[in-house]
Amino acid sequence: MSSLEIRNLHVSTGDKEIVKGVSLTINSGEVHAIMGPNGAGKSSMAKAIAGHPDYLITEGEVLLDAKSVLEMESDERARAGIFLAFQYPSEVPGVSIANFLRAAIQARMAEGEEIDAAAYYKRLYEKMDLLKIDRKFTSRSVNEGFSGGEKKRSEILQMAMLEPRFALMDETDSGLDIDALKIVAEGVNHLRGPNLGVLLITHYQRLLNYIVPDHVHVMIDGRLVKSGDRTLALELESKGYGWVKKEFANA
């Protein structure tokens, strides 16, 4: 069993502090949802944990199985088992999904070890079938000209192939219609299991109808202000964020 422990995390971009001391532990097998209004610092936190160079961790710790990841480059963090599903995945013209994933898997192998191409494609096609992705998809350039739904499915496919220990899913529901959302949620539910911990970032509770979280946290102005189970999400849905803010201000 693994754990991803976020301890008193402070994150800045430029000279602006966005995340102001977040502590949270995710164990494998658990799905945590972080909800909060735009600008609360949810995405910044995810990017900082993944090692984005523009998001500076000024204080605190991120521990993967009690080992700090902060000295690691982003590619090392990924190989250690942290996966960021992007809200806006980059387009990589001229690089096919198949070659992109192959490079990512090759990077996880020992030096001198070569990927078994037949086994690789077999596995890739299995995952694609699971996610209801057309096989022609593999020869398309990564995210280039993809619809919103295709981009998100491509993220889930990558996650399925790379088998991370922890997935940080940044606004996976944004830009999706209800059918696309269902397909993506189904994919995540397939991957859910005792070996994976998930941090689900969203500002709508809609996604949580399809991916049911074990824990729900509310983030406002860079801090986690309330935690609970999935009923908290339903409460937020009916009452909005206003009451949590008020409650937090009065505390």
């Binding site: 090692g51 984005h52 982003s74 590619d75 990924a78 990589v92 994933l101 990512a104 990077a107 990558q158």
Partner: peptide, 11 residues
């Protein structure tokens, strides 16, 4: 783009 590739573990 580079961060995207690195975030998948590609050195």
């Amino acid at each position: 783009q580079e961060f995207y590739l690195k975030s998948r573990g590609i050195p």
